[in-house]
Amino acid sequence: MMPDRDTLIAVRDLQLSFGPKIIQKNVSFDLKRGSIFAVMGGSGCGKSTLLRSMIGLLRPTAGRIMIGGDDYWGQDEARRTAINRRYGVLFQSGALWSSMTVGENVALPLEMFTDLKPDAIEQLVRLKLGLVGMEHAIDLFPFEISGGMRKRAGLARAIALEPDILFFDEPSAGLDPITSARLDDLILTLRDGLGATIVIVSHELPSLFTIADDGIFLDAVTHQPIAHGSPRDLHDSCTLPEVTAFMHRSASIPSQTEQKAEQHV
């Protein structure tokens, strides 16, 4: 199956392992340009591992990741780094470089990869921090700001180089519902404003329903994807017990629930 022109990322038969332990296999999906794609699944199913393989931190043991027609892991390191230039990544903890101020964090990629003059860089840094509502924190160090602010600052750094693909690893993890809802709004606004394609790894249902328009559901037991589609569609129409349990927030998948009901009798 050849990906069509709208497809920005095509993953084919990907297999991810740590040593002999297989994390996920047979992972295949297409990511449309401009879409927000959710990687869903319970804790420990390999969502973040899939993300790490897409951003070049973990080599898959089989399969291909095609980015705009290039086989990502078939390239040499220099070429991969060049592809990474199109990426913006928001890590789970924000991953701000702790020896630098928030402003310097956003400025570093600009200093490294552009020939901009210092005052032009400063303008851009203020703009990116302004977009995420963090302009006041420009001179603060990461340890001086809260977890939610760190995430927003991490987002400002992720969009520093005008990426066309954004990756979010658990953006709402550890945030209160209001902060997390604001972050969702911000992600949507940025997608529309920057025209970026977004891959989001999450198990936060409210935020998935709000923002994602396509997705894949990874199963931790069979170690492979068991459903494709937007979180909304999976919620409304998917009949697989694992997916419905996840989508409807029940504590156990139905087969086990029946067992327990019997024991109560």
């Binding site: 070049g56 931190l57 780094t81 990474n84 990544v89 890590f91 470089w97 570093l108 490294m112």
Partner: peptide, 9 residues
């Protein structure tokens, strides 16, 4: 932070 450096290139 190391991952972030690597991904940024």
């Amino acid at each position: 932070e190391i991952d972030a450096l690597q991904v940024t290139g």
